[in-house]
């Protein structure tokens, strides 16, 4: 990778981790979830709770980016924000809820600055960040058909602040700081996304790792060419929902996997995936 070469002579002072990232990282190699364990990952260790399904989902998302060297992740406050600054990829931390507004400006600026390269912008935030405080910027980015991907890490509550209800908490559930129980149903944001203008919408789980990877990849490729994409990933939180961490994946299966594409998106994805090297999608615009 041209952009990931060390200036000659400085190799001898670079820490081992960077030498490995240059020699064996995922940049420009078209790797995916199936290759995990065979390359130097963008994140290796993280400070999230043991068994955190959100941490696992982020690992899978990072492994699924079509062109990590040309991707910027835009995040916001929440458990993911503790992990993200340590990832070996450009990422921006925004004011809580502001992520889709920042991503809008960023995507437009990158398109002007790099007209010949696809720079993928991916919003990745918790359910509180997307469906509650960030709902207006999220929805408006879809209404405006902004071409970036929004990924919601849905742990059905505000975990980072000790367990408050979010719009995604299921009806009747009692979380730590909401003793009366949720009074209304989980917001069907994936349904809202379809009518709000998303060209690709999926609901995924880290319990089906390859399928999750395929969905993230498809979402990003659709966002490049067709229109906004939304992926909602169910990430059960053992700390706030008080179940043993070893049960996370079993719980993560308790959700529906769905996928929706507008006809142009379907056509585009079929064209790419039928190509000789479906994994190696060029990022030339």
């Amino acid at each position: 990778m041209e952009a990931l070469k060390i200036s000659p002579g400085f190799e001898k002072v670079m820490p081992q981790e960077y030498l490995e990232l240059v020699e064996d990282g995922p940049y420009g190699r078209g790797l995916g979830v199936k290759d995990l364990g065979t390359f130097k990952e963008l994140i290796e260790v993280h400070p999230l709770c043991a068994g955190c399904a959100l941490g696992l989902s982020i690992r899978l998302i990072l492994a699924s980016l079509p062109n990590p060297e040309n991707t910027v992740i835009v995040g916001t406050t929440g458990c993911n924000a503790i992990l993200m600054p340590q990832v070996a990829i450009h990422n921006i931390h925004c004011l809580f809820g502001n992520q889709s507004a920042v991503a809008t400006g960023l995507k437009r600026a990158l398109r002007l600055r790099y007209p010949n390269t696809h720079k993928d912008v991916v919003v990745m935030a918790g359910d509180g960040g997307v469906v509650d405080i960030g709902l207006a910027p999220t929805m408006h980015s879809w209404f405006r058909r902004e071409q970036f991907t929004t990924i919601m890490l849905d742990n059905e509550g505000y975990s980072n602040t000790g367990g408050q209800e979010s719009g995604m908490t299921r009806q009747g559930v009692v979380v730590n700081m909401a003793p009366l129980g949720k009074k209304f149903p989980k917001v069907p944001l994936h349904e809202v996304a379809k009518v709000a203008g998303c060209a690709y919408v999926a609901t995924a789980t880290p319990a089906r790792a390859r399928r999750l990877g395929q969905m993230v990849r498809r979402a990003i490729l659709v966002a490049r060419e067709i229109g906004p994409a939304y992926v909602q990933i169910f990430c059960p939180c053992s700390t706030n929902y008080k179940f043993p961490p070893a049960e996370s994946l079993k719980r993560a299966k308790e959700t529906e996997i769905t996928e929706y594409m507008v006809p142009e998106a379907k056509e585009w994805i079929e064209r790419i995936e039928k190509g000789p090297k479906a994994e190696e999608v060029s990022n030339e615009a």
Binding site: F10, V13, M14, P15, Y18, P85, Q86, A88
Partner: peptide, 11 residues
């Protein structure tokens, strides 16, 4: 020489 290859806080 001691490098500052990027600005990530490391865990």
């Amino acid at each position: 020489i001691i490098p500052m290859p990027d600005y990530r806080p490391k865990y």
